[in-house]
């Protein structure tokens, strides 16, 4: 089996088989990381454009690293340096990129649906690196990979996502992907950040943190976007921390094997206390490493890579 699709725009339209294939290939690439030479020549001579229309550090670096480890040629452009600041439309940018015959586009954009739009205009594969509040499929995949490594088959596993669900593309990608794999997802946060209608996406809505985490196998703690400003969706950082912060106290109430994830960057002592962030129950840096592997896997599979070839030792 290989990935029979042009783009990865979200986990909403990916099947369980596709997700598991990506995780399988990603785990093989992770093995490469421990070798003295960490790159493979799979993408030599092909150009990947990283188009970041929104500030990003870790996702951009993770993609760049993935591309470099596959030996791709890389062009970066971000909002500060692109002609977007001169009022060019997304359509014009897309047509320019198409004319330049790039081999793959990685796009981060502040507007929900922007990656979908570009994928319709461009003939090359498009990977969504986050569109507005919609989806962030590579984050979703790396989160699921991190869970899958520890929990195996995700069917019946209980995952609780905590934070600003309404504005989180990470939450949506987690929800779609985990549902595909048969996990049971609960979302938790203040009602200003967790719309009740999200239950229709196939999750349990629980506003009481203690109840939301009691049976969980995993907590995925989202970053609170402080730039949105306290006072609207929540009264203050302190109040948020008191009611929904993941503290030692919360962790003590978890099942013994349960662990804590965070997509980063963390607001210490807002959504997660420093003790937990640095403690034995978190797997945050593992998520980071898996992120590079998942992105390598997607780039490899979307550029026509054969999973069988990889198994027979091309990467290993």
């Amino acid at each position: 089996m290989s990935l029979q699709r042009k783009d990865v725009l979200g986990l909403e339209d990916m099947s369980a088989e596709e997700i598991l294939l990506v995780l399988d290939i990603a785990s093989r690439f992770r093995a490469v990381f421990d070798r003295p030479v960490r790159s493979v020549p799979i993408m030599r001579g092909r150009t990947v454009v990283n188009f970041f229309h929104e500030p990003s550090t870790r996702t951009r670096i993770s993609f760049e690293l993935a591309e470099k480890r596959l030996s791709a040629d890389i062009v970066n452009f971000s909002v500060a340096t692109s002609s977007f600041s001169k009022g060019e439309t997304l359509r014009d940018t897309a047509e320019n990129l198409a004319a330049m015959k790039i081999d793959m586009l990685v796009v981060r954009h502040g507007s929900s649906g922007a990656a979908q739009y570009l994928s319709r205009v461009l003939a090359c594969p498009v990977i969504n690196a986050g569109d507005g509040c919609h989806e962030h499929p590579t984050q979703g995949l790396l989160d699921i990979m991190t869970m899958h490594q520890r929990l195996g088959d995700m069917r019946g596993k209980k995952v609780t996502i905590i934070g600003d669900i309404a504005h989180s593309r990470v939450a949506r990608s987690n929800i779609w992907g985990l549902n595909k794999l048969g996990a049971e997802v609960t979302v938790c946060g203040p009602p200003t950040m967790v719309p009740g209608n999200i239950a229709r996406m196939g999750v349990t809505v629980e506003y009481d943190l203690k109840k939301a985490v009691a049976q969980a196998d995993v907590l995925n703690v989202l970053r609170i976007q402080l730039e949105r400003g306290a006072g609207g969706d929540f009264p203050s950082n302190r109040e948020y921390h008191r009611m929904y912060g993941i503290t030692e106290d919360v962790v003590r109430g978890l099942k013994p094997e349960a662990f804590v994830m965070h997509p980063g960057p963390m607001n210490r002592n807002v959504e997660i206390s420093s003790e937990v962030a640095d403690g034995p129950r978190q797997v945050i840096l593992d998520q980071v490493a898996n992120g590079v592997a998942v992105r390598m896997a997607l780039i490899y599979l979307l550029s026509g890579g054969d999973p069988g070839a990889l198994a027979s030792g091309e990467a290993a």
Binding site: S112, G113, D131, C133, H134, H167, R172, N197, R200, M201
Partner: peptide, 11 residues
Amino acid sequence: GGYWSTRLGLT
């Protein structure tokens, strides 16, 4: 503002 705005990530 309803299920679809939530699902699509639009305000």
